[in-house]
């Protein structure tokens, strides 16, 4: 029993997403009000977003923007940029050497960065979720205009009687 508990605790994110998902699924299946069903659908989709976001996370890691990009000192960027055109040609060769040295110095440690891909994917999934929610609400309005109610049992009653 204790081992199950610690297992769940160690993977709390997965437990959370499954609980959220089941709440959403329950609302979609069991609720009588169409808007509550739509809310359930939204929770259901959000649960998967939570799952994806959590698989991309890592303790002690940072966002994947390289802190070192070839310049030993971050000071004087602006000045450097202003004169970059003139300097670029002259220092071309020099820069290549600097880069090589830099690469050895500041080699990118993959472990320092989180994986951005799942998060990027979720941007798309969020957009999809919003669009689905919009279409669902629009349909709910049309249902309400037709039947004058959003309760499923009342709608079914109307359908049976007429």
């Amino acid at each position: 029993m204790e081992s199950i508990f610690s297992l769940v605790l160690a993977k709390a994110n997965y437990a959370a997403y499954i609980i959220l998902m089941m709440i959403g699924l329950y609302a979609m299946i069991a609720k009588n009000n169409l808007i509550k069903k739509i809310v359930g659908m939204s929770i259901f989709q959000t649960a998967v977003i939570l799952f994806y976001v959590s698989i991309g996370c890592k303790k002690g890691a940072t966002i994947p923007i390289l802190r070192h990009h070839g310049h030993p000192e971050p000071v004087g960027h602006a000045a450097e940029n202003a004169g970059a055109h003139a300097m670029d040609a002259a220092h071309g060769a020099e820069k290549v050497v600097a880069h090589a040295v830099d690469a050895a110095h500041n080699a990118v440690h993959v472990a320092d960065y989180i994986n951005p891909l799942p998060h990027v994917l979720m941007l798309t999934a969020i957009v999809v979720g919003v669009a689905t929610l919009g279409v669902a609400l629009a349909l709910a309005i049309r249902v309400y205009n037709t039947y004058g109610t959003l309760e499923e049992d009342e709608i079914n009653q109307q359908l049976r009687s007429g």
């Binding site: 979609m28 169409l34 069903k37 659908m41 689905t132 349909l139 249902v143 037709t146």
Partner: peptide
Amino acid sequence: NTRAPLATLNYLFLGTI
């Protein structure tokens, strides 16, 4: 037709699942 929105909403729920 007038019944379509309700049928579509049910389709939307299952389709989303």
